[in-house]
């Protein structure tokens, strides 16, 4: 009979590490890597969709994000300024959009200061984000790549009409992204 040898205990991964591992799905990362993110025409078209969404919904900020393993990359925006605009994204652990990506479903936070998942988020406590409504963006091979959203500096009551408008705009974002995505064969 063999005596089990005690193994040094591995620390349990943090919630942040688990999120990053889930987002690092190889097929999803490969599809994200095939998008020509440096094309200024793509960026301008995404900014225009974000501007249209912000105006239609009367929101303060609208974003089109691509959620990588450790950051959300802001691929298009309107109404955004400050360090997030300058950095071109945020760490993923603060990303509202990552929730829409991981679930594949719309994500809504009407009052972030009262939301258990978001009330300690530095974007809420330090940068004044108070509300969020976003829908997932699906790539041409079915991977959820990011989200299209509006954010507010006051709590908001989002309606089915808000979600429908975001969903419609999100489909247009997906069509535009597909135009700037290399086929898998061309990327190899």
């Amino acid at each position: 009979m063999s005596i089990p040898v005690p193994r040094p205990e591995q620390p349990a991964p943090t919630a942040e590490e688990v999120t990053m591992r889930l987002l690092a799905d190889p097929d999803r990362m490969r599809e994200l890597a095939r998008i020509d993110l440096d094309d200024p025409v793509l960026r301008a078209r995404l900014d225009a969709i974000a501007r249209d969404t912000r105006e239609r919904l009367g929101a303060t900020i609208s974003l089109i994000t691509l959620v990588l393993d450790s950051v959300q990359l802001i691929a298009g925006s309107d109404g955004l300024d400050g360090w997030m605009a300058a950095a071109g994204g945020t760490p993923v652990e603060w990303s509202f959009c990552a929730n829409a990506v991981l679930s594949g479903r719309p994500y809504v936070v009407e009052d972030a200061a009262r939301d258990p998942r978001q009330l300690a988020n530095p974007l809420v406590t330090q940068d004044g984000i108070a509300s969020y409504c976003g829908v997932p963006l699906t790539g041409s091979s079915g991977q959820v790549l990011g989200a299209h959203c509006v954010l507010g500096r006051q709590p908001e009551e989002y309606t089915a009409e808000h979600l429908a408008a975001l969903h419609e705009a999100g489909l247009e974002v997906s069509r535009v992204l597909a135009e700037y995505t290399q086929s898998p064969a061309a990327a190899d």
């Binding site: 490969r30 890597a33 393993d69 300058a86």
Partner: peptide, 17 residues
Amino acid sequence: DPVIALCARAVTIRLSS
């Protein structure tokens, strides 16, 4: 490697933040 290059883009955003 396009995925490693994308990973570099992520590190750059974290660094800039």
